Each structure stands twice: as structure tokens, then as C-alpha cells.
Amino acid sequence: MDTAADTGLEVINAQSDAAFAARRVHIRDVAIQMEGMQRIAHAFVENPDTILLELANAAVELCGADSAGISIEKEDRTEHDFYHWVATAGQYTGYLGAMLPRYPSACGICLERGQPQLFRVGKRFFDIMGIEAPPVTDGILLPWEAGKTRGTIFIMAHGRTEAFDQDDCRMMQVLADFAAMGVRQQQQQKLLLEQASATAAAAMANDLAHKINNPLQSLTNILYMAAEGHTAADAQTIGRQTSDDLKKLSTLVNELLALPYRKLI
């Protein structure tokens, strides 16, 4: 655990925290989950420029969060402007574009550890930053990496102390993989636009997006059947089915991320 009373940050490794493992699993609205996944799929295929924003919005909806966001280490970073919030949703929507220092930073601890982290942020931190924002009473922060670009994706609650559970952590891992894929897709598109034609860039983006469409479609189908009452499966069974599809989806995304850039063109 990293508890810094002087900075107002508390960051705990989620995978080794017994209290987090013992939390009761929350029941989520499958219709909302289905809609979130459908929007992610649509963004990858039709509007890749919006994928990071869609992921932040989906994180709020899929995990019942009050706020969510995605940060990236700036290319021209300085100690004072190190992390760039490139997507925000929920109560933190107004902080889109915010720049945070290298220290103090929950993002930095998360990237250093390379694993999902639980975090809380108190008033002291915001006083140091010179901003006013709702405190984070419960949050999950995950790292992602796309080539030489690194960042985090996070969900937050601003009043509840046990807002999230292990299912939320698994869902966020998939969204973290998508964030890496989205950044890589945008980087590839930018490179192709610089070196070739817009047609070639669009072809690459479509090819990449369609590779992840099948497992996404399978997941949304399960959620649709549950939402419409067309299945006799209970919540636990549906949870297992969606968990299996999430694992397949995460595996596929990681395989795509491991490919050299030139193979995606």
C-alpha cells in the first residue's frame, strides 16, 4: 500500500487486497451493459476518433461509477505537465484536457506497479493541485500501453466507499486493453495519413476494428437476451457467460497489440 498523508493519495494493489476480494459483487443492469458495448463496437468501426471518450462513458455505465477518465503520458512532458487527461466522463467531465504533474500521482504509482490499483483521493491532493473537485472515496485505476505510449484508465466514486468489486476490475481490464488499442489505432491512422492516403488509413482502421467485432457481438447478444427476458439463466450464469466473452475479448486485443505495426497496415 502507498499511503501518503501529506499528498492526500492512497493507492493499494487491488490483486493483493483481501478486503477488496471480499467485497459483495454488485448486480449490474444488463441492458445498460449491452448498450455500452454496442457503442464501443460502433466507435471502433465507424468513429475511431471518439473511441477514448466512448470508453470513458462506458466505464461509468458498465461499472456504475460516478466519474471515469483516461490519462496519457505526454510526449513533450515536463515534471509539472506530465499526464494529460484525454477523456473524461461523469462528474469529472469538466476536467477534460487537464494536465497533472509527475508527482504526486496515482497514475505514476499504477504505471510503476503495472497492475490494477485501488485508490482514494482526499481534499489535500486537490489543495496541492490548486483545484476544486469531488473527493474520490473509491476508485480503480489500471495501466495500459501502446508501443511507447503509456497511460491509465480509471473509475471513481465520490461518496461511496465500496462502490466497485472484482467484476468491475475485470471489466476495466478489458476497457484498458481497448484504450491501448484505440490509441494504437489513432497512431497508425496518423502515420498513414502522413505517409500515404486517407483511403489506406481508413482501410487499416476498418480492418483492425472488424477483428474485435465478433467477440463484442457475442457479448452484446448475451446481454440483449438477458435484458429482453429471452433467457432463463440467472444473474450468476449470465455473469459467467459475459466473463468468458470478456476474457476472449481481452486475449484477442492483447494479441493484436503484440503484432508489429507493419503487420496491421
Rank of each mutant, 00 (worst) to 15 (best):
T3W: 05
G151E: 05
D6R: 00
G159L: 07
M1Y: 03
L111M: 14
D165R: 03
R120C: 04
M171L: 03
M34D: 12
V121L: 10
L192Q: 09
A196F: 08
G64C: 01
R170V: 12
Y95C: 01
V121W: 09
T78Y: 02
H80P: 00
D66Y: 04
T199M: 08
G69S: 04
I153P: 07
I155M: 00
A179L: 08
L257S: 14
G94N: 09
R23G: 03
P116E: 06
A41L: 12
T3A: 09
D127L: 12
L55I: 15
A98N: 01
T88Q: 02
W144P: 08
L191P: 00
T220Y: 12
A201F: 05
L193P: 01
P104D: 12
K211N: 13
G159A: 09
D177E: 11
C63P: 08
T149L: 04
M156H: 05
T152W: 02
D6S: 13
D127Q: 15
E79R: 11
R77W: 02
P215A: 11
T7W: 00
Y92Q: 02
W85Y: 12
R23M: 04
M181T: 00
G94R: 07
P135Q: 15
L257V: 02
D76Y: 07
A19T: 09
T161K: 11
I70F: 03
V86A: 09
R113V: 00
V86N: 01
T251L: 11
V30G: 13
